[in-house]
Design a protein around this nucleic acid. Sequence first.
RNA 1: GCCGCGGUGGCGGAAUUGGUAGACGCGCAGGAUUCAGGAUCCUGUCCCCGCAAUGCGGGGGUGUGGGUUCGAGUCCCACCCGCGGCACCA
Length: 884
Amino acid sequence: MKKFDFSRIEKKWQEVWEKEGIYRTPSPSKDKPKMYTLVMFPYPSGAGLHTGHVRVYTGGDVLARFFRMKGYAVLNPMGWDAFGLPAENRAIKEKTTPQKIVPKNIANFKRQMKMLGFSYDWEREFSTTDPEYYRFTQWLFIQFFKMGLLYKREMPVYFCPSCKTGLAEEEVLENGTHERCGKPIIRKLLPQWLFKITDYAESLLETLPPLDWPEGIKKMQENWIGKSEGTEVKFQIPNPKLQTREIKVFTTRVDTVFGVTALVLAPEHPLVSEILNPKSKILTEEKRVEIKKYVEEAKKKLDLVRTDLSKEKTGVFTGLYAKHPLTGEKIPIWIADYVLGFYGEGAVMLVPAHDERDFEFAKKYGIPIKVVIVPEESAKRKAQSAKLEEAFVEYGVLVNSGEFSGLRSKEAIEKITKYLEERSLGRRKTQYKLRDWIFSRQRYWGEPIPMVYCSSCAEKKISFWDLKEGKEWLREIEHNMPEVYKNISRRIKEVKEDLYGWFPLKDEQLPLKLPEVEKYEPTGTGESPLAALKDWVETKCPVCGGKAKRETDTMPNWAGSCWYFLRFAQSSKFKVKSSKLEEVWQSEMKNLRVWMPVDWYLGGAEHAVLHLLYSRFWMHALYDLGLVPVREPFFRLRNVGMVLAEDGRKMSKSLGNVINPDDVVAEFGADSLRVYEMFMAPFDQEIAWSTAALRGVSRFLNRVWQTFNSSDNLTERQEEEDKEAVAKLHKTIDKVSRYITDVKFNTAIAAMMEFLNFWTEKNASEKPRRLHVDDAKKFLQILAPFAPFLTEEIWREVFKEKTSIHLSSWPSIKKEFLKEEVITIPVQINGRLRATLRVSADELEEERVVEKALSLDKVKKYISDRPYKVVYVKGKILNFVVQS
RNA sequence: GCCGCGGUGGCGGAAUUGGUAGACGCGCAGGAUUCAGGAUCCUGUCCCCGCAAUGCGGGGGUGUGGGUUCGAGUCCCACCCGCGGCACCA
């Protein structure tokens, strides 16, 4: 018998499928509902696809193929996320350009994807680096700008002296090194574009619960946004020499406010800079130097590797006092680096008795510890003022708290907040951990930010919204979307000052192409390489016609991935003839309405927060502007687990344990690789590579091939068909259908293996089991999403089918085959299995089953004459509870 | 420290969600075929014990200890271990 020659066959079908265009996206209709399956698109690196890519893309492909056969109009696209540092760094190293590297990498990725038989609609392919694509990335940026969601501000950003580039905080590892190059980073003050993502914190939180995402991922997003409700309390500083009149603190435990024995400021707090100014003359020179030294140390510390030793809290007393808003007591003001400058107000009230960190700090510096909360039980006795061994951080009953003494914590929080609000000493406040998103990069290989800066307009304090164009835009929003307008105009007030002189490009000027340059290495000054291109940078101000400069920063990698799923859903022949991009976008709304949201989104859990949060944010904002039909981009999310090397470690070149898909396909074929990666473990679980297990899968596929190529197990005559095999087949179809949509690919394959074993076993009379060819084909069909090449070969070459198996309809199940005719009922005595009973499916009544069971010798033996109780779950189990 | 996920044979894992624990695959052992095999096929394979031993019977068993239940891998309580994330968030 001929062996399965996979390399010849795979090549043949790749070509045929392409020619026949079987994976082109059909138009959905009433009978053909839409199904948008998407896998996180890859960064086309020079190394080509790795086994992890194969895993997640195969998973997506199985779903797409399954839904296609189920009669859905499937959109299953693929593209490339090709801007960003790796290509740029590689180009620098190899003395070439990213423009030359990227297409090569893409071509290699695409070759490998075709080799693996992924059923993408290649007509929708694009790269984020295509000017036709980033023209709209830039246009979207401008929409966000107009909405007041962007502002420019000097920010202390992380900077990698080795890569000579500014970094987002997310690119810095815990140990203070750059995630790409591993070198230590420093901090540098640079003007940055920031996204006001914090303005959407509530919105992003609100729509999270109904999403069909892994609960863990949802929780991580929730924690990242980090909402907490509490009270802002004002402490006045009765010191006429100071400009700062008050210190605001945020607390979730205002019930402990009577226990405040100090205020602690972050080194970044405005009051700190004020008193450090030699001109202010608030402090003695000695004190000023002491504090200055501490603050500088603390700021450096942020940049240093955080060690366990640095965990001990340090601080310095300023010599200044604030007034307690409720008791009027003098409260000393300290500075300590454990208070963060960017969270809350950059200051906390120190309540040593009821916060562990405060307790530790107070002990160290001899600050008084005042108990104001006691456990409810001890409140009933007498408030004991015994020395605290540790902070009492739970809720309890207030003591030593003036008129609020005796209240329970929760009630006290309400009452004290109200009291403070009435006297303008505080207010209810919701605080988020989420911070605004630094969106500009001082790098070459990214989308140019389509903004122009005119210094003379800036001096005249002209902003975009002061122009006729800006006013008209706002008026239209106000007219059409009054609610949205409220938010936009509030934000504009907040950001306007930072944006005098900044004007967006006109639609017809887009795309603002990334100029080809000779030297695109980072400048080292922190500026983007684009800053060196005089001709490009210098331009005319669209407002006054004078000299103006282009923004030379580019967008981060995230920009392209924040809306690529929209682009796939828009028409594939998306050629922009009109320069009116708004019209072009609006004309595509019908397609977005058809396809969005993504029904199935697969990708690694490492994107749990950033990519998913950023794209959700863009969608929420675009929804407010009426530019997308839904708020949430991804209805259903499933994670894929990593593929580790055979030794259980990460695959890496330096360890020499990398498995290359090209090699595996050459030796075992694409189907074997696909089925193996789906079979090894649940999809979301990590797996270690095992070539031995891959052989097992390969053996299974070979047995499928042999079975369909021999006459032993097939028949054209209905009467020769093995009834048991048919019943088993239908059960298998049922299982596989359910397992696929449960993303339990491993058990789907196990079920098919089990079926093949049964089918090729001899029956009770030692004869081979035969299936009618029409039924045998059904088995091929359920295997087709996993092993597209092998099944197509048999479908068309053995069975001479004219059209692809992948366009065939998923086999339907006959319910009567799902029923067991004879059921095995376990018989237990006192919960221990003692026997099994084979009962026909129409004799499941308790009376009959018990009678039968009692006739079993084993059961008799255990019961003998003792009284018993019967627990019977129909068709499931029988348990005799016997007294001993 | 906090949050999330997990702990089942020699290994990867299965278990209809409270109802026969170990499906399927790997590995291993024995056999067939072969000049040969790291190819293919068949048989066996959770551990321990007993017997009139190719069979039959008994006991133990899902990280540990307790609990609920006729019945627990699954539910509850306490603890141990591993992985991932966040890390002074007031």
